[in-house]
């Protein structure tokens, strides 16, 4: 960012000093340099906000003793091979099978958004240390092979099979490599923004695999074209709640009151829900669709998830 700002100032100085010394082509070059430096600086700042193209790896350990591993998940079912961060709490040890939460990121974004902007490792350490959350393995998978392709965690017609990756390949990999619960009661989902839609949609579509899901500023529809029309039907939680039997899972729906889209959709989902689907709502007054809102929702949503998942098992 600092380099970008220096480049912006330097190109401004160059255009000021060099304008009278060059002709049309040179002046055009100066203008282009100016525009490029500004565009690059804005892009760097936007990337810093979204972590869409992170450059530095995450920290591996915390002072609380938890670990964050960077692993590669081969996906035989989805044919996707993507990176994933794995949070192992300080209490993680072989022999005790811990519950699992898959944490899904927004778009644009990457798991790094959870780690950096939302400081998730710190929140998890704190909630577990306080006894408000059981020791839990938390997964932060990438959700697309192309950072600029919004999959909404669905199987795109002719595109990445992200739903299969997240619901088949990731669980299989984690069950094979870590000491975790393998039953449905021990698995949950969470996500912010597009990741919140993902969490809700995947939980409704796979109630045999996930017992609970938390949505932080989520939507009732994917907002993309999947290619088979299911964005209006089976990949649309609003449609599912109206037209299909509701599953016996628990949903936590959180939103900021001034985030009009997420607030409207979350309220609509909560209003459509009925037994055996259980819904808990949480609202913050201001903050829009921003990381400040999601940071405030993190601890309450993780506490709630832990209370709705099976406990660690010997």
């Amino acid at each position: 960012m600092i380099i970008g700002l220096v480049a912006v100032v330097l190109t401004a100085v160059a255009i000021a000093l060099g304008w009278n010394r060059v002709r049309a082509v040179g002046r055009s070059g100066l203008i282009v340099a100016c525009v490029l430096s500004v565009a690059a600086t804005v892009a760097v700042q936007v990337n810093s906000l979204t972590q869409a193209f992170p450059t530095v790896g995450a920290s591996l350990t915390s002072s609380e003793g938890s670990r964050l591993l960077d692993v590669t998940v081969p996906g035989p079912a989805s044919r996707l091979t993507l990176s994933m961060y794995v949070y192992l709490p300080a209490a993680y040890r072989s022999g005790v099978r811990l519950p699992v939460i898959e944490a899904l990121h927004g778009y644009p974004g990457t798991p790094e958004t959870w780690l950096r902007k939302l400081r998730v490792q710190s929140y998890l350490d704190k909630e577990i240390a306080a006894g408000r959350m059981a020791p839990t393995v938390v997964l932060f998978p990438y959700q697309t092979p192309d950072r600029l392709l919004d999959t909404e965690c669905t199987n795109l017609r002719g595109g990445p099979q992200t739903e299969t990756f997240l619901t088949v390949d990731v669980p299989a990999f984690v069950r094979a490599h870590y000491s975790v619960r393998t039953d449905r009661d021990g698995w949950g989902l969470t996500g912010y923004s597009a990741g919140a839609f993902c969490a809700t949609n995947l939980a409704l579509r796979h109630p045999g695999q996930y017992a609970a899901a938390a949505s932080l500023s989520g939507y009732a529809s994917p907002g993309i074209t999947i290619g088979d029309g299911t964005e209006n039907t089976t990949n649309n939680p609003g449609w599912r709640l109206r037209h299909l039997p509701q599953p016996a899972i628990a949903l936590w729906l959180g939103w900021a009151d001034d985030d009009r889209g997420a607030a409207r959709d979350s309220r609509r989902l909560a209003a459509e829900a009925h037994a055996p689907l259980a819904v808990t709502t949480a609202v913050v007054a201001h903050g829009g669709h921003s990381s400040a809102v999601w940071r405030q929702m993190e601890a309450p949503s993780f506490d709630w998830l832990s209370a709705h998942l099976a406990r660690p098992a010997s």
């Binding site: 609202v283 601890a299 309450p300 832990s306 099976a310």
Partner: peptide, 11 residues
């Protein structure tokens, strides 16, 4: 579920 301390909550 596990035995847990009182959670953090939002309105």
């Amino acid at each position: 579920p596990p035995a847990l301390a009182a959670p953090l909550t939002l309105p």
